[in-house]
């Protein structure tokens, strides 16, 4: 995956970038399956590798497939990115060890979910139970976010189309 990321960053042909990011999504989905997060893996494979690849290809059809050469060497953003990456890696050092049973996340509400979800909701898939029932408000918010995204795309692209019809009055 690191090699893929490097390839995406170095590649100038945007079609290759789209294909590489699709490959990246599939690898990510595989990693998530290995981590037993099948629900997330499914989403990653269908959205990341499937739908978004098609959408990106559609966008590339509209705007051409070659990335423009940058005018200046982007050293400052590189430094900022490296510093933030370093801070994040430093932050992970403070996290509990991987799959440590005594980590706070496993001792707070997770035991209740795992033990009582079937009894309380009648739904054997704990992920579904947590998403739709225990965290119902969050999922409602997420659905609203998706709705807002759709409404935003509709608003943006409709206006462009109308401007085109109106003989390019706006600059």
């Amino acid at each position: 995956m690191a090699a893929l990321t490097l390839g995406i960053a170095l590649q100038r042909n945007l079609y290759a970038v789209v294909v590489l990011s699709g490959v990246y999504s599939f690898l990510m989905a595989t990693a998530l399956v290995a981590l037993d997060a099948v629900d997330v893996a499914m989403t990653e494979a269908s959205v990341g590798a499937g739908v978004s690849t098609v959408l990106l290809l559609g966008a590339l059809y509209l705007c051409g497939g070659e990335e423009a050469k940058p005018l200046t060497r982007p050293w400052l953003p590189l430094v900022i990115a490296l510093v933030i990456a370093g801070a994040l890696v430093y932050g992970t050092l403070g996290l509990p060890a991987f799959s440590d049973p005594m980590a706070p996340i496993h001792t707070h509400v997770v035991p209740r979910y795992l033990h009582d979800a079937l009894k309380e909701t009648g739904v054997p898939n704990v992920v579904t139970a947590v998403l739709a029932s225990y965290r119902g408000y969050d999922t409602l918010g997420e659905t609203t976010v998706v709705f807002t995204a759709g409404a935003g795309v509709i608003a943006l692209l409709r206006r462009i189309r109308r401007r085109k019809d109106g003989e390019q009055e706006a600059p």
């Binding site: 099948v38 629900d39 893996a41 499914m42 989403t43 269908s46 739904v123 054997p124 898939n125 992920v127 579904t128 998403l131 739709a132």
Partner: peptide, 9 residues
């Protein structure tokens, strides 16, 4: 409800 998946997927 029984296997991975749900509304979003």
């Amino acid at each position: 409800d029984f296997s991975p998946g749900g509304g979003f997927q």
